[in-house]
């Protein structure tokens, strides 16, 4: 049933592909933070239309599957625009956009938690908008939501196999192609599953530790309720 020799043959290529998975996870996570920040700040713009458009875009992206968004980015964009991007880059942009909308909700909850007095004080001190955001609001809004951001790191990690649909050779696609060579599917898929399982359990253990150490025992929730 379970063949250890086969496992030994499989491991090098699976671990190599796991590197691609981790790379996509980290790049997608960083991009989602940037996009999330832009969305969260733009959703509080003083210009009405900007607010409405950003909220509509966030709602639309949140309500549609990542897989279909990836198909759209990978297959349609090159036909609509002169840009054609490699699959890996498209995958990262897809992850970043999709989870950027979730991230913006997380940041929004952090920004909402900053007392109004801080905004008023900034106005009283005649700080520019830029200075208000960068030196007063964000430094107070971001640290409390770090654990929630960590949870989304795990979510993004678990979503990376979706990128295999646009031919990113990550862990699942490698397991699939190994299986198609030998017709033995049990070991590759089980190993892939275990790698995902162990890594995300380790991640969440780390985040819980960090939360307990730096954020008290208070449970933070963000982006859940609308």
């Amino acid at each position: 049933m379970w063949n250890w020799d086969y496992v030994n043959d499989l491991l090098p290529s699976l671990l190599k592909a796991f590197g691609v998975t981790l790379g996509a996870t980290i790049a997608g996570f960083l991009l989602s933070i940037v996009i999330g920040l832009v969305f969260a700040v733009a959703a509080r713009s003083s210009i009405g239309p900007v607010r409405w458009i950003v909220r509509a875009v966030v709602e639309f992206i949140r309500s549609t599957p990542l897989l279909v968004q990836l198909f759209f980015l990978y297959f349609s964009l090159p036909m609509l625009t002169p840009f054609a991007m490699p699959a890996f880059i498209t995958g990262i942009i897809g992850l970043g956009l999709h989870y950027g909308t979730y991230m913006s909700e997380v940041f929004r909850s952090g920004i909402d938690a900053v007392p109004t007095g801080q905004w008023e004080a900034s106005t009283a001190l005649h700080l520019s908008k830029r200075k208000t955001w960068l030196s007063v609001i964000l430094p107070q809004a971001l640290p409390p939501v770090i654990p929630v951001m960590g949870n989304y790191l795990i979510v993004i990690f678990k979503e990376t196999p979706t990128l295999s649909a646009i031919t990113v050779v990550e862990l699942l696609l490698t397991a699939k192609s190994e299986a198609s060579i030998t017709y033995r599917v049990f070991e590759p898929y089980t190993l892939a599953g275990l790698l995902f399982l162990v890594t995300s359990l380790l991640f969440s253990f780390g985040i819980r530790l960090l939360e307990r150490r730096y954020f008290g025992t208070k449970q933070l929730t963000g982006g859940g309720k609308r």
């Binding site: 795990i154 678990k158 979706t162 699942l172 892939a192 599953g193 995902f196």
Partner: peptide
Amino acid sequence: SCSLLVLLF
């Protein structure tokens, strides 16, 4: 903790 797509596979 398990990825849904991997679980499905």
